[in-house]
Write a protein that binds this DNA or RNA. Structure first.
Lengths: 337, 337
DNA sequence: CTGAAAGCGCTTACAG
DNA sequence: CTGAAAGCGCTTACAG
């Protein structure tokens, strides 16, 4: 059936073959905006099928000023947390028949701004921004440009764009409570290099949760496994290894686990660890990581609905604590076992 | 300087302001294909700057039939190996002023085909395919469609498109040799569920490398951490845990490490492990994973050069063995220490 | 319900 | 070196 032509068939080819006008062909291909007689419709559909007609999205975009493409700005796709988020966002977009343009900003505000400019030049219908650090003013430019934007994971301080993120406060409270059930009084927190982004929120939530309890130590390091690994080794060497630690991110937790193991203080006996960024794969560390499970798919769905105007309310999703072994829980038993 | 207009400036606006034709403006914006007098050029540049002119890539694409967009088909962006590859490919493309459309095929040939169709409809200038399993014939369609394609990590059996991959044979030989230096005679291999993709090549290379030695056991499981973890637990329960194991992928190695730890046979004493997919983060497992380091950035650069016609030869890059602890090596010492 | 035609913003022969 | 104009493949008032 499909034509063996060198050139792909155009709307005009279909119209000619169906003996009608390009307007009518457009109406049936797009189911509107004008009605078409059933008989005509059949002829058009048949002609399109015979010619193997595929609409040229570029031409459509030029005329209708909507591309069906959304730009996704990411800090770093090789971080599994962002990678998983990217996958869910791409799939949510795909379900709504949109294409995803991706860019890695690499934790740099300059690169992020540059990527957004390129996406804007490509006429994206919207922007999904997964930023790790503080969004500067430039992150707000998209609104200015009349392109809808939504932030996932974290948004800029004074921005107008919606922000989709999990409930950091509840997650931190739950982690602190769980470590207390294990009998820990000193619950240390491992934050990022500064209080930027959601990690700042988590740090604050921890501060509040441990207030009134025993003295609480705040640790900081970069978000890489390597940095956390090195920090733990240093602390162990100084005899200052915490007994119970909540890490802001999975990557840090993984570094803590490997560092502690290397120093002879493996978790959970040497150090009890809970992470706040749980991706599915955090189950396969040694020992298995107890972590807050970020509802990535729900976040992606909501972000995309918001972006495409199919939802209006921003609801912060619950991030439940998934209890595994790094906190000190036994195989099947609860705290204290 | 930038105009406060609601509508972005067009080529025609710039031409009007510079008192020239759109053709001339196009020539200066694109540095060709016709020469322009220096004075005219200055006027055009000034006008463009004053109006904050940004070329409309959609219009350009419709006219010139080249979009500056490349489609990247990936098995799964939440797998850190693919995520890292995706990041390098996007950045290589960005350096050459191309945009990257991304899609997750989720290990499904149907979804991969569907994604390629969508990318083709969006008029991509090329396709980068990072396929995990056997590429079926449909993976070859791109050539038919006159869109250049390049496979990274693995290509279909009888395809014409170039394939960029690391040297699996050499990597496997090196891993086997290293475990032998540690005194292991029985070197087990953990492959995927079947011999599809590069893993099949690695399996074959292992077969060859161990031929003539002691009896060699082949294991298989899915590519997830969970599957490898479960396999190891089962083997341990049966008393059939191998003493030395090469895993086809990092994800499997991580699952092996966590499973072995959970069973009381932690690596490297309980089981010596080497992985063949080393990403930078494999350094932060417990114990640190000895692995073949895939030259991801070099692979991405080469793939993109090949795609854009800036390179013609496919050279398989060396994937050196990075010795850490899971093979049994000590802190600073070599094999046997 | 249908058709002829304008126009989206560019690029590029073609003619000066 | 420069300009007037056609045309890329669509969508969509507008007029029948």
């Amino acid at each position: 059936m499909t034509q063996r032509a060198d050139k792909p068939a155009t709307l005009a080819d279909v119209a000619r073959r169906a003996g009608t006008s390009t307007a009518v062909v457009s109406y049936v291909i797009n189911n509107g905006p004008r009605p078409v007689a059933a008989a005509t419709r059949e002829r058009v559909l048949a002609a399109a099928a015979e010619l193997g007609y595929r609409p040229n999205r570029i031409a459509r975009a030029l005329r209708s000023r909507t591309t069906g493409v959304v730009g996704l700005v990411l800090a770093d796709a090789s971080n599994p947390y962002f990678g998983a988020l990217a996958r869910h966002i791409e799939q949510a977009l795909e379900r709504r028949d949109r294409l995803t343009l991706i860019g890695n900003a690499g934790y740099s505000a300059d690169r992020q701004r540059h990527l957004i400019d390129r996406f804007l030049a490509a006429q994206v219908d919207g922007l999904v921004i997964v930023s790790a650090d503080e969004g500067r003013d430039e992150a707000d430019r998209p609104e200015t440009m009349n392109v809808p934007a939504v932030y996932v994971h974290h948004g800029p301080v004074g921005g107008h764009a919606p922000v989709v993120a999990a409930d950091n406060d509840a997650a931190v409270r739950e982690a602190v409570a769980h470590l207390r059930e294990h009998g820990h009084e000193h619950i240390t927190f491992l934050a990022g290099p500064d209080d930027a982004g959601p990690v700042g929120l988590r740090r604050a939530a921890w501060q509040t949760a441990v207030a009134g309890g025993a003295e609480a130590v705040l640790l900081r390091c970069d978000y890489s496994r390597a940095a956390a690994d090195a920090l733990i080794r240093r602390l162990a060497a100084e005899g200052a290894l915490p007994r119970a630690l909540i890490t802001a991110t999975d990557e840090q937790a993984i570094g803590v686990l490997s560092g502690a193991w290397a120093c002879g203080f493996p978790a959970p006996d040497g150090i009890a660890v809970i992470s706040l960024d749980g991706t599915p794969d955090s189950a396969h560390t040694a020992p298995a990581l107890t972590a807050t499970r970020q509802p990535l798919r729900a976040m992606a769905e909501q972000a995309v609905d918001l972006l495409l105007g199919q939802a209006s309310r921003t609801l912060t999703a619950r991030a439940p604590l998934v209890i595994r072994r790094s906190c000190g829980c036994g195989w099947q038993s609860g705290p204290g076992a």
